[in-house]
Amino acid sequence: MNYRDIVSNSLWKQNPGLVQLLGLCPLLAMSNSIVNAAGLGIATILVMALSSGMIALLRGFIPYEIRIPVFILVIAALVTGVDLAMNAWLHKLYNVLGIFIPLIVTNCIVLARVEAFAAKNPPLAATLDGAMMGLGLTLVLVALGAVREFVGGGTLFAGIEMVIPGARAVQVLPADYPGFLVAILPPGAFFSLAFLIALRNWIDARASERAKNQPPAAAPALEGVSS
């Protein structure tokens, strides 16, 4: 099992937010600030890593015919634990995220990775795959949150006091910046995501062009060959 390929596929080649386009509802709804995006992203990482590892451990005991209900049951139990933990320790952020934490149960990213990878691979590889897929989604969430928060209000880390008492948001633009309301509304989420997808595709296209333009490696010269 090549763990480097797992990381590369999860963060770039098969990124759930930019390539597979899975879980767009929470991706677009909770990416209006860095703090909200990171909070939901961390919860998703925990659920994906734990559920993938657990399913990989139990896969030999789960009958094929009822695997999907069992997968959902395991995911729901883990989401309940994460939901209760956030309610206890990050209550203000929990109130902001609202229904989107319980809805991780129905997030197609989680079930898709459990079915496609965890149910067919050993526990360590499955746990790494789940964690990296969650991290890939979280990076997209945070990038969207940063762009939308900056353009929409001229700040970064708004709401950080919900996680770190006494901390304050960073006012990047002047205090009299009127803001750009569209950025923090649903259309702003679609425009920002489209920009990130286009940027990723452009980077891949440039890398492909550079690979094509590289001269082929010269064959090693043969020494000591008599005619």
Rank of each mutant, 00 (worst) to 15 (best):
Y3P: 02
R4T: 01
I6R: 06
V7G: 00
S8R: 13
W12C: 13
W12L: 14
K13M: 00
P16H: 14
V19Q: 13
Q20W: 15
Q20D: 14
Q20K: 15
L22P: 10
P26N: 12
L27M: 13
L28I: 09
N32K: 11
G41Y: 08
I42R: 04
A43I: 05
I45L: 03
L46H: 05
M48W: 00
G53F: 07
I55A: 13
A56F: 13
P63I: 04
I68N: 02
P69L: 08
P69R: 13
L73A: 15
I75R: 03
I75N: 05
A77M: 07
G81V: 04
L84Y: 02
W89K: 00
L97S: 04
I104P: 02
I104Y: 03
C108W: 01
C108D: 05
V110E: 01
L111V: 04
A118S: 15
P122M: 11
P122N: 14
A126L: 10
A131D: 09
M132H: 13
G134I: 12
L135C: 11
G136N: 11
T138N: 04
L141S: 13
G145W: 10
V147Y: 02
R148T: 15
R148F: 14
G154K: 04
L156Q: 05
I160E: 07
E161P: 00
I164F: 13
P165A: 07
Q171D: 03
L173D: 02
P174E: 10
P178T: 03
F180V: 06
A183F: 03
P186L: 12
G188C: 10
A189Y: 09
A189R: 06
A189P: 10
A189K: 07
L193A: 08
L199P: 01
N201R: 15
I203P: 01
D204M: 01
D204P: 00
R206P: 06
S208E: 15
R210Y: 08
R210V: 03
Q214W: 05
P215S: 02
A218L: 10
P220W: 12
L222F: 02
G224D: 09
V225E: 10
S226F: 02
